[in-house]
């Protein structure tokens, strides 16, 4: 599958290291329009602003374990918003326990990726979401 290079992606992680790794991987996969936020709260502001100017975020990759507003609560807020509830959401977490997967799925996450992961695994997860969503 070839990805649409200008698709607007938002990477949310409190660790600049992981944002950089994810951005590197996404660039390798051909994505060129990648925006960053260092927590869920800032991500919400970016998503709102992008929506208001008619250039919305089209895909979110978010860490789970973040201070202030964590990835799960960030996802729940989005799911309550008519404007943003359909943005595809890939949750990224260091916690590999099955219980976490279930919690995220119940909250409406599109897919789930456990750190550490390779660019190939990220590609497969994104492709699965695109296939499911018909993107």
């Amino acid at each position: 599958m070839s990805f649409k290079p200008n698709m607007k992606l938002l990477v949310v992680d409190d660790m600049s290291t992981m944002r950089k790794i994810i951005k590197n991987m996404l660039s390798q996969l051909g994505f060129k329009n990648i925006i960053e936020a260092d927590d869920g709260r800032k991500a919400l502001e970016i998503i709102d602003s992008a929506h208001k100017i008619g250039d919305p975020i089209e895909f979110i990759l978010s860490d789970w374990n973040m201070p202030d507003l964590n990835g799960l609560d960030f996802l729940k807020i989005l799911k309550q918003s008519e404007a943003h509830k359909n943005i595809p959401f890939l949750m990224i977490t260091a916690e590999a326990e099955q219980g976490n997967v279930m919690i995220a799925v119940k909250s409406g996450v599109d897919n789930f990726i456990v750190k550490p992961f390779s660019a190939q695994v990220l590609k497969e997860k994104i492709e699965k979401i695109f296939a499911k969503r018909g993107i």
């Binding site: 374990n65 260091a94 916690e95 590999a96 326990e97 456990v114």
Partner: peptide, 18 residues
């Protein structure tokens, strides 16, 4: 690169927890 070590430890503990 100041949080590289923290991210590595985060991933190690996250996986060990399982």
């Amino acid at each position: 690169i100041s949080d590289v070590g923290a991210e590595i430890s985060n991933m190690i503990l996250g996986n060990a927890k399982r």
